[in-house]
Amino acid sequence: MALAQSFALGPILGRFAPGVSRRVWGLAAFVVVAIVAVLILPFFAPNDPFHSQFLHRLQPPGLDYPLGTDAMGRCVFSRLLYGARLTTLSALLVVALAAGFGSAVGCLTGMCGGFIDRVVMRFCEGVSVLPALAICMIISGVLGLGLQAVIIALAAVHWTDYARVMRNVVMVERGKTYVTAAEALGVPGHRIAMRHILPNIAAPLLTLGTYSLSWVILSFAGLSFLGLGVEPGTPEWGRMIAESRSHLREYPRLVLAPGLTIVGFVIAINMLGDVIGDRFRDTRASYFHPKD
């Protein structure tokens, strides 16, 4: 399987950045292959997901339309495939924004400590216990309801999780012997952060990123179900469910198909998180029995 083989890319990529362990590179390659696999899904769509044919509305599943057509005569299967790309891209953007900003803040406060650390962490705790969906909705509503607004809103709520985790990880790593050793050797601070600490926290960051991806996907679907984020008619899973609601009694498959797709997708991502988590434990063990 391609996904499994991508782990083998680790040692090759490892040559380009010797500081980062090959296993972490293997994980990264694995994730990248999985993402690319999702992004090329629309090329396998049998029909145009935007093209509505009123002569073919509400067709049952068949050879031309693998999952039938919706109330506008659009191919449900093709729309699901396009939705996969839209959802994945948006969710990745949210995770990238949240992870980038959150880990930067977390690392900085972890390194600074003291008063700044306490204030920032109290703020992050405060934000992460608030009703996330409500806050996201209000932020995106004020920003103008579009896809961009929803992405910013989700990231604005979600970065605090990264800040908290990264701060704790940095606090732990800072006290370890290898950091003291690097300091004793006179390595400058930024180099310690980039070359010594970062490779060691890359794996937990990757694990957290995977799990938060599934949260973002569920929230994104919920927001577009409520009519925020994407325009009506966009092939997005939450939107598809909202648009098929009035046909729930006669054509439950129109609601079932996107819903099952979301559930399957989220479960797959959570399993990916488990795989990465297991690998992460492997890298930990390899400190004692170095193989690479």
């Binding site: 179900f225 729930l248 819903g259």
Partner: peptide
Amino acid sequence: SIPNFWYALLLALLFSL
């Protein structure tokens, strides 16, 4: 792993429709 809006729709489908 289940979006609650979808789950709510399924309950509505089962119990009311």
